[in-house]
């Protein structure tokens, strides 16, 4: 066979393989919906421990969650747990539905979603998670040093950049703080719009770097996100930070919460709690903890944490009634 003939046959093979893969891949995904119906029944089986999370990126989160649920299940064999699954939800409502149906046993979430899942699905708050190595975080309000803004009341007639309606530290918390301060919020379509003199305008910037850029360039008067974003150069470049001041901080909130569904076998629930509380002492848990959003450890909620969660309930109420 000549070289050019070999290349041609190679090309034909490549194209055929590619075509088969394209159609095959699509069919597999189309079939997934049908397969998933059968699987949902399987998830109800007692021998499968199912972990869940609300996310917009299920592919990425699968790699975070699977090692941890596998690690936990390894220590539950005597309780009949022989298999693990991950089932993620696109929003709170979907996760509520999964928890009510018993499709998800264990959820890791932000305090705000945790409270919603507790209120609407009867989920039980189990532990506090040191996500990304920290137990708590708080919201900071910041502005340019030359803006003349030194307090929340200075925002009247001005605009603040927030992230998006799904964000805890860059929407729910700052919005509720402003509302509790007696300020009236009004959503603006773009930073170019101006609020009325007696109101505070807010815009959704979608990303932390956009919030800080809006503030740096003077498109808006202030921004809000969490204290970890403040120290992250990707979200607030050093060149921006040196010209900014923090003019208000929220109280700290637990970084993340572990929950279990209502009605989960008490033996499994108790064992899960023990496993998680001891994980940071177990060298075999190191990889799973790292994958699990760089968790340093889990701990029982303190009185202070419970007070913070009560405040979260209040915040949710005020944000819902005022803005939604």
């Amino acid at each position: 066979m000549t070289i050019s003939a070999r290349r041609r046959s190679g090309s034909v093979l490549a194209v055929l393989l590619f075509g088969i893969l394209l159609c095959g891949g699509t069919c597999v995904l189309a079939k997934t919906n049908l397969w998933a119906q059968d699987k949902s029944e399987a998830l109800l089986e007692k021998h499968t421990l199912v972990i869940g999370k609300i996310t917009q990126n299920p592919k990425k989160l699968f790699r975070y969650l699977k090692p941890m649920v596998n690690y936990a299940a390894e220590h539950m064999k005597d309780l009949g747990i022989t298999d693990t699954e991950v089932l993620m939800a696109k929003d709170n409502q979907r996760m509520v539905s999964y928890l009510k149906q018993g499709k998800v046993d264990w959820v890791t979430e932000t305090p705000f979603s945790a409270i919603i899942l507790q209120e609407k699905a009867g989920a039980e708050i189990l532990l506090k998670k040191w996500k990304k190595g920290v137990p708590d975080y708080h919201t900071i309000f910041f502005a340019r040093k030359d803006s003349g803004i030194n307090s929340l009341s200075d925002l009247k007639g001005k605009t603040i950049a927030l992230e998006d309606p799904g964000s805890t530290s860059a929407y729910s918390v700052p919005a509720s703080i402003l509302i509790n301060e007696g300020l009236e919020l009004v959503r603006l379509a773009s930073p170019r719009e101006k609020p009325l003199a007696d109101k505070v305008g807010y815009v959704f910037a979608e990303q932390e770097i956009t919030i800080s850029t809006y503030v740096h360039k003077g498109f808006v008067s202030a921004g809000a996100f969490n204290n970890q974003d403040w120290n992250k150069d990707d979200h607030l470049p050093k060149a921006f930070r040196k010209n900014m001041i923090i003019f208000h901080k929220s109280r700290p909130f637990p970084r993340a919460i572990e929950l279990v569904r209502k009605g989960l076998d008490p033996g499994i629930k108790q064992r899960l709690k023990e496993i998680l509380l001891n994980a940071h002492n177990d060298p075999k848990a190191k990889k799973a903890l790292r994958a699990y959003q760089k968790t340093e450890k889990f701990e029982e909620l303190s009185e202070k944490d419970r007070d913070s969660l009560d405040e979260v309930r209040g915040i949710l109420k005020s944000v819902r009634s005022e803005l939604e």
Partner: peptide
């Protein structure tokens, strides 16, 4: 009873199931 499917596009197209 179905596992949700997420469709994303950043020019191309990506489909992900919510069970990962």
């Amino acid at each position: 009873s179905r596992v949700d499917v997420k469709v994303i596009s950043k020019g191309g197209v990506e489909v992900q199931t919510y069970d990962g």
